[in-house]
Computed example of a mutant assay.
Amino acid sequence: MTDQTPASVEALSVVAFDLSLTASGVCYRDGSTSTIKTRERDGDRRLLVIEEAAQIAVGGEHLGLGPAPALAVLEDIPKNSYAAKPIAMVHAIVRTVLMKAGVPYALVTPATLKSYATGKGSGDKVPMALAAYKRAGREFEDDNQCDAFWLWCAGRDWLGQRPFDTDMPKAQREALKKVDWPEVAR
């Protein structure tokens, strides 16, 4: 796991997950990121590793870890993809953790996330990393952390908490309207 931390944490906290069975990106409440890496040889036991890491990221009074975040943001399960089945298993585990902690969550499609981050809904991971560097001076160990960071930014932006010193362009913020955002206790 790696860790990068920006300046501050606001009252309405957000956690974000770019989920995968082999390497899930996590962005914590303070904006720091890490990757939950699992080994294929461990089979379905990898789900337990992901569950434990998600519990730590989410926290919550029910675990004696303080208040849970106000919102979690997850990259949605890809449609028509070979990876959809294993990612769906990971989603089930993480969503269960979120529900037990009482944390509402939003699902953001990859195209919507790319539109928010770069202004274009298609392409590879390089524009996402470049946008994070230009906008926030952030670099990541892998694209999983980068995607989790952008999901975190989208959640904060939706809650009215600017994720950067400058505002996102209006056209890019418009992408957030495509997300079915849950009610969040303020």
Rank of each mutant, 00 (worst) to 15 (best):
F164P: 00
A16I: 01
V97S: 01
S34W: 03
G119D: 06
T112P: 05
L71N: 00
L48I: 01
R95W: 01
L107S: 08
I87R: 05
D42H: 10
W158T: 03
Y28D: 12
E174D: 12
R29H: 06
A136W: 15
T118M: 06
I87C: 01
A106N: 02
Y28S: 10
S8G: 13
G31F: 03
M89E: 15
E75Q: 09
P104Y: 05
K177Q: 15
L19P: 09
L74G: 00
A57M: 09
S34R: 09
F164Q: 05
W181C: 10
P182Y: 04
S32P: 00
A53G: 04
A117F: 07
I50C: 05
R95I: 04
A11Y: 11
P127T: 13
P67H: 14
I50M: 08
A175E: 08
C146P: 02
V94M: 10
V26G: 00
M128W: 10
S115D: 12
L71M: 02
R46W: 07
I77A: 12
K120S: 05
L113V: 07
V184I: 12
I36A: 11
D143R: 10
A171F: 14
K170Y: 09
A23C: 15
Y105R: 00
Y133W: 15
V90C: 06
A68P: 03
C153P: 03
V49A: 14
A23F: 04
A129W: 00
V90Q: 06
T33D: 02
R39Y: 11
G102V: 09
Y116W: 11
G155M: 05
F149E: 02
P78L: 07
D147I: 07
T5G: 02
A185P: 00
M89D: 13
C153E: 10
A54M: 03
R186W: 13
V179M: 13
T166H: 14
I77D: 03
V58S: 05
W181F: 11
R138H: 14
D147A: 12
S81G: 08
P67K: 15
D142R: 04
V97H: 01
D147T: 04
F149A: 14
